[in-house]
């Protein structure tokens, strides 16, 4: 697996708080990478640097290098709108717009200038199919996205992210607000999507990381303690702190 994302000596500060400390990390292409660690360890912060959502928080400062396919995403070369088109994101709470299911999916493509009804219809259908939601909603695309269940809403949000045709999909604890059955559906979906997309997920649930990811990164106090193939990290971690965390001694 070739590397798609690479962080080199990455430091991030929220005003005075040093949230990411000298992060060095590579994330492989077309695979699932899970970020685990206790609350406040920096895993969500690093995820949000990948599509520059941290830019919106006043007082954020970044040092070091973060490249995606060789391009520094914090350099002048990259505009943030293009970056976010390429790096989609799904949030902790399902956050559909108070619009119809159709308009939710078409929101992204419309932003980027697609107007043709036929083209939009096509995108809506393929995106919903990719997110395994098409069969459940195809007969009422005009219904409000808020009328479907939380698990369906989250898959709708995945479909919405896929509709702008990203290469990378970021998932920020995307199942933590869902019931176990909905969670399972999303996990299965992640397995299906990893052939086509590079997926980076933050999870508070170690078992989820073990179930769905190819590579796992363990964070502690803003540092990357260890990252490795998921199987190796969970069965034979190198660092004592990783061992302590995955065996449930803290966290």
């Amino acid at each position: 697996m070739s590397t798609l994302i690479e962080a080199k000596d990455l430091n991030l500060f929220y005003t005075d708080f040093h949230a990411l400390k000298n992060v060095n990390l590579t994330i492989p292409e077309k695979a699932v990478t899970a970020f685990i660690g206790p609350s406040g360890c920096g895993k969500s912060t690093l995820l949000r640097t990948l599509n520059r959502m941290n830019d919106m928080i006043a007082g954020t400062r970044i040092e070091g290098k973060l490249t995606i396919s060789g391009t520094d995403i914090y350099s002048q070369e990259v505009d943030v709108e293009t970056l976010r088109k390429k790096v989609g994101m799904v949030f902790q709470q399902p956050n559909p717009f108070p619009k119809s299911i159709y308009d939710n999916i078409a929101y992204g493509p419309r932003l980027h200038g697609i107007k043709s009804k036929q083209k939009l219809d096509e995108i809506v259908e393929t995106s919903l199919k990719s997110a395994a939601l098409w069969n459940e909603v195809k007969d009422h695309l005009k219904r409000s996205a808020l009328s479907i269940s939380g698990g369906q809403q989250q898959r709708l949000c995945i479909a919405r992210a896929l509709a702008v045709n990203p290469d990378i999909l970021l998932m920020d604890e995307a199942t933590s607000a869902l019931d176990p059955i909905s969670t399972l559906k999303i996990e299965e979906l992640v397995q299906d999507l990893r052939d086509k997309y590079t997926i980076v997920m933050v999870t508070h649930n170690m078992h989820q990381a073990a179930r769905v990811s190819n590579q796992t990164v363990f964070f502690l106090n803003g540092e990357v303690v260890e990252y490795d193939d998921t199987e190796k990290l969970f069965s034979n971690p190198e660092d004592q702190r990783t061992e302590d965390y995955i065996s449930g001694r803290f966290g």
Partner: peptide, 23 residues
């Protein structure tokens, strides 16, 4: 979260305001 959803899809500020916040 509604603004985040829009920004995360690559919307500019005005697109977010006009298509998500104002409606």
């Amino acid at each position: 979260s509604r603004r985040d959803a829009s920004f995360a899809l690559g919307a500019t500020k005005w697109q977010t305001v006009s298509r998500s916040v104002l409606p």
